[in-house]
């Protein structure tokens, strides 16, 4: 990692951490959910770099959330770190299995098959009345390595948990992008055959990416479940997947940080629209997306790049 980037990432993390002590609770809880969702978006970016778009990422998001709810409820586990780990790993496990199938698919067919799989999970959950059907389940109040905060302290603790997990994920994914396997994503998107001729297995590369993105989505779902305090089958519905793709496009695939900025921007705009136009918030949301695509083709992340260009132009 280049030094400037490290400083940048470090200061962004610090700024977010300081904000945790200064901003009112409602902003903190909004940011908590936004950053948890940012992990899912980061997973989508991992795939998008290889040219794959999933309309079924909600499958893993939902898996992560339900894993937390069920283990908390029936397994008696309350430790947040353990719960999040289990949530992420269960999603990654599922993805490893269905990856043998999914890794063979590309383009729209990949999108549609992943959509079908997530809708099957949705159907199963809705049919399972013992899990509350569409009403869902409440999630237990987590503890943090024995520390059991309540109310305002719980919100801040969850926020820091999400920050730490996101920072770790960002570092690891950043390292992955710079590794050989990560760097091959763009060649895979451009032309798989050429990558095969280099002696690499494209399906194994893609399978790895699927598992990574599922791990991220499951972790995001687990964190969101803890932050919201409730899970329901809608977490697996196709509109949830659609929203994540929406944020991915908004953010752009340019950098790791874009996922979190994009997600935060999306949550803020949505919440703002709800408050401003209770009955017409979709117009605002749709317009923001449309304008972003038309005028910021590389997403919000590209704003950062542009900023650099501007600076260089001024400072020879």
């Amino acid at each position: 990692m280049v030094r400037g980037d490290r400083i940048a990432a470090g200061s962004a993390f610090l700024a977010a951490a300081v904000a945790g002590f200064m901003l009112p609770d409602w902003i903190i809880s909004l940011a908590t959910i936004a950053f948890a969702n940012g992990l899912v978006v980061l997973g989508l970016i991992v795939m998008w770099r290889a040219g794959l778009v999933s309309f079924g990422q909600a499958l893993y998001y939902c898996m992560g959330g339900y894993a937390v709810a069920l283990i908390g409820r029936w397994g008696g586990v309350t430790d947040a770190f353990l719960l999040v780990l289990v949530g992420g790993l269960s999603a990654a496990g599922i993805s490893f299995v269905i990856g043998f199938l999914l890794a063979r698919y590309r383009e729209i067919f990949f999108a549609m098959l992943s959509l079908a799989l997530s809708m099957i999970l949705y159907g199963l959950l809705v049919k399972t009345e013992s899990l509350g059907s569409t009403d869902g389940l409440n999630v237990i109040v987590p503890t943090f390595l024995g520390y059991a905060p309540h109310q305002e302290k719980l919100i801040v603790a969850l926020y820091f948990l999400v920050l730490v997990v996101c920072a770790t994920a960002a570092l690891l994914v950043g390292a992955y992008f710079r590794s050989l396997a990560g760097a091959l994503a763009i060649p895979v998107r451009d032309n798989e055959l050429r990558v095969e001729f280099l002696g690499m297995s494209v399906s194994r590369l893609i399978h790895t990416k699927l598992v990574i993105s599922a791990l991220l989505a499951g972790t995001g779902g687990a964190l969101a479940a803890l932050a919201v305090g409730h899970v329901d089958p809608n977490m697996s519905y196709w509109t949830t997947s659609g929203e994540f793709v929406f944020i991915t496009i908004l953010a752009g695939a340019g950098s790791v940080g874009a996922a979190f900025v994009g997600s935060l921007a999306f949550e803020s705009v949505r919440s703002f629209a709800f408050a401003m136009l209770p009955q017409l918030w979709e117009i605002l949301l749709g317009s923001v997306l449309l304008l972003t695509i038309l005028f910021l083709p590389q997403g919000l992340g590209s704003l950062i790049e542009r900023l650099h260009w501007g600076r260089e132009a001024k400072a020879p």
Binding site: W48, E107, F246, I283, L285, G286, L289, L290
Partner: peptide
């Protein structure tokens, strides 16, 4: 947006869908 990624074009139609839902209202 012709010529952009397929998913970007799909998202543009999604944005249009959101806006039109409220135009109905």
């Amino acid at each position: 947006v012709y010529g952009r990624d397929e998913v970007v074009m799909a998202l543009v139609t999604y944005a249009a869908f959101l806006i039109l839902e409220d135009v109905v209202i």
